[in-house]
Nucleic acid binder design. Structure first.
Lengths: 344, 344
DNA sequence: GTGAAAGCGCTAACAC
DNA sequence: GTGTTAGCGCTTTCAC
C-alpha cells in the first residue's frame, strides 16, 4: 500500500497541488470541469489527505474534545448518559470530518485542572464540549476558558455570559409532566430530587413546583424526598413516601434510575402500578423501557444536544466566530405504562 | 499564549533541536547533565511537543482506535460494557502518551467495511482494538487486517493464528461458578444463555456444562433457556424455568441484565432470593450491585483487558514487532447476596 | 554524545 | 481560476 499524496493526485489530474487542495477542502474558485477531473483522480488513487500534515499546516487538529465526569468515581453521570452523549458528538464529528477525543476526568482529584490543561495543550482539540455536571464548575470552566479553546457547555444549570451552552427545557418539561399527572386526576403528587451537584436535575424540581401551581395544587414539603440519582436512593425515598398517612398516588422522580427503584418498592409492597400508583421518571435511558411496567419519562435529547454542541464548535472554528449565546433542545414526554388515572 | 516550539527550548538550553528531541523521546545518547538542562528549559517554557508535527515526521499518529458495536442498534454490548472498555483503553493510552479514538459501528449496515476502512485511512491510528462481538466477525477482522494496521481482538470466542487476542477465562470461571452453586447444595441448576452473536458469552455455557460434570450433576436440556442478554429476556426465561414441574433452585445467567430479570420475576412470584432460589450473573456491571438483593456474579475484567490490549498495541508499534499470540486476564467470582444454600 | 540538513504532506499568502 | 513559494514543528539520516 504505497502512500498516495496530494502530488500524485495533482499529477494524474494534470493540475497543481493547490487546486487539489481546493477541491478537497471544498473551496470556491475551481471550475466545474477541473473539479471533476480532480475528483476522478482522487477516486482512482483512493487518495486520503494526511491529517497530520493538514493540521500542521492549518493549525487545526480537526479534533473535538469531550470532557465528562469519570463514571468509575461517582455513578453520575451513568454509562448510558455518557454513551448517548458520545453518540451525538460522534455523529456531528463524522458528518463534518472531525474525530472525537473523549476525556473523562475525576473531579475529586486534586490534579484535575492540571490534567485538563495538559490534555488541551498536548492533544490540541479545536474545541471542547464540557458535559454536565462539570459544566457547572467554575473552576473547570475558567481553566478551559483561560487556554483560549472554544468551549461549549452541555446542560449546565444556567447560562453564563462567557461561553456558549446547549441545554434542554428541563424546567418547562417537568412542569408539563406534573400537569400531565394532575390531568390524570392525581392530587397528591410526590417528587424525588436528584443529586445536588447536577444543576440541570435541580431545574426539574423547580418545574415540578411550577406544574403544581399551574394545576392549582398545593406544594407540600412532605411530598418531596431527596435522592441521589441511584436506584437504591429511589427505593429509600419511595418507602418513606408510601408510609405517609396521606401517601401520594403519583411519584415523579428526577431520573429513571430512581423511578425504577420506586417500581421495585411498589412491587414488594404489592402496590399495583399504575392502578394504585403512577410513576414517572426522567432521561429515558434504556432501563426505562426494560423494566415492567415500562416507565413514563421525559426523553432528554442528550444525543441531539451533544450533536449540536459539536456542530456549533466546528462551525465556529471554521468561521472564527466568537462563541457566545445558548440554545435549547426541547425534551418530550414519553407516555408509557407506569402512569394512569388516579385511583378513585 | 505564544506557541513554544522545540527551537525555543533548544535556544534556552543552549543545545540543538535534535538533542531536545532526544530528551523528549527518552532516547539514549544524551549526557545526564545535558538532559537536565533541557528538562529545565522545557519546564520553564512549559513546552509541549506538537503532535501534528510529530506524527507527520515520524509516521506515527499516537492514536489508538477502539472499534465496537454501536449500542443504539443492538443493546449488546451495553453502555456499561462500552464505558468500562473505554476506561481501560484510556488508562493505557494516557500512561503511554497516546490518545484514544472511539469508533462505534453498525454491524448490520451494508457499508460497515467501507466505513471502517475510511476510518483507518483517514484517522490513521497506530493500532486497532476490535471489541467483542465484532472481534468474531471474519469480515471485519479481514478488512482491518488487509490495511496492515496492527490489530488486537478483544474477548473473541476463540483465537486465530493471525492476530493477537486478549480474553478472559470465561469457560473456566463459569465452571467454577457452577461448582460453587453445587457446593451450596444445589442439584437443579439452570442456565440462561446469552445472545448467540457473542461467542465469549457462549463459552460461559460450555463452562456451565463443565461445572455440572465436575460436580457429578447431570446436564438437563430443560434447565437451559435461551436469552438475548436483555433484562426482558431474563424475565421470560425465568418464568419458563420456574414453571417446570421440577423447578431449579439456582439459576445462572450468562449476564447480569438477565440475572436482574430473574430477580424481578422471583419478586413477582413471591419466591425469596436467596432462600428459595439462588441467582448468579456474569459481568459485574453496576446494576449487579444496585438491585436488591445484590447479585453474585463474575467480574469480567474488561477494563484490564482493554488496558492490556492498548498497551500491547503501543509497545508493538514502538518495537515494530509482529503482533501474534494471545493472553488471558483471569476473571473472579464476586459472591454477594443473591446466592445461598439450597432449600432443604 | 551531539548537530546540520533534509524532508514528512499539507495549507496560507500571494502572484499571475 | 490557477499555480508558486514558503513554511507548519517535528523526526530521520548521517556526519562529526
Amino acid at each position: 500500500m504505497p502512500k498516495v499524496t496530494i502530488d500524485d493526485v495533482a499529477e494524474l489530474a494534470g493540475v497543481s497541488i493547490k487546486t487539489v487542495s481546493r477541491v478537497v477542502n471544498r473551496e470556491p474558485n475551481v471550475r466545474e470541469l477541473t473539479r471533476e477531473k480532480v475528483e476522478q483522480a482522487i477516486a482512482e488513487l483512493n487518495y486520503r489527505p494526511n491529517q497530520a500534515a493538514r493540521s500542521l499546516a492549518s493549525h487545526h487538529s480537526r479534533l473535538i474534545g469531550l470532557i465528562y465526569d469519570d463514571p468509575s468515581v461517582y455513578e453520575i453521570p451513568s454509562a448510558g448518559y455518557i454513551v448517548k452523549m458520545q453518540e451525538g458528538a460522534l455523529r456531528a464529528c463524522r458528518k463534518l470530518g472531525y474525530e472525537l477525543l473523549i476525556h473523562p476526568c475525576r473531579i475529586r482529584d486534586k490534579h484535575v485542572v492540571a490534567d485538563l490543561k495538559a490534555f488541551l495543550e498536548e492533544a490540541r482539540p479545536d474545541g471542547i464540549i464540557l458535559a454536565a455536571p462539570l459544566s457547572n464548575m467554575p473552576k473547570l470552566v475558567r481553566a478551559i476558558g483561560s487556554t483560549g479553546s472554544p468551549l461549549v457547555r452541555l446542560a449546565p444549570g444556567g447560562k453564563n455570559g462567557k461561553h456558549y451552552s446547549v441545554s434542554t427545557n428541563d424546567r418547562e418539561i417537568s412542569a408539563e409532566m406534573t400537569r400531565y399527572l394532575a390531568s390524570l386526576g392525581h392530587r397528591n403528587i410526590a417528587f424525588i430530587t436528584g443529586h445536588p451537584s447536577h444543576k440541570a436535575v435541580g431545574n426539574r424540581f423547580l418545574g415540578y413546583q411550577d406544574g403544581l401551581e399551574q394545576s392549582d395544587l398545593q406544594f407540600s414539603p412532605q411530598l418531596v424526598a431527596a435522592g441521589d440519582n441511584s436506584i437504591g436512593s429511589g427505593e429509600i425515598c419511595a418507602q418513606g413516601l408510601l408510609e405517609l398517612t396521606q401517601p401520594p398516588t403519583a411519584i415523579f422522580a428526577a431520573n429513571d434510575d430512581m423511578a425504577a427503584g420506586v417500581i421495585r418498592v411498589a412491587d414488594r409492597l404489592g402496590i399495583a402500578v399504575p392502578d394504585q400508583l403512577s410513576i414517572a421518571g426522567c432521561d429515558d435511558i434504556s432501563l426505562a423501557q426494560q423494566v415492567y411496567p415500562a416507565i413514563t419519562t421525559i426523553n432528554q435529547p442528550l444525543s441531539e444536544m451533544a450533536d449540536r454542541a459539536a456542530t456549533i464548535l466546528i462551525e465556529a472554528t471554521r468561521h472564527k466566530e466568537p462563541l457566545k449565546g445558548f440554545e435549547i433542545v426541547p425534551a418530550t414526554i414519553k407516555v408509557r405504562d407506569s402512569t394512569g388515572p388516579a385511583p378513585a
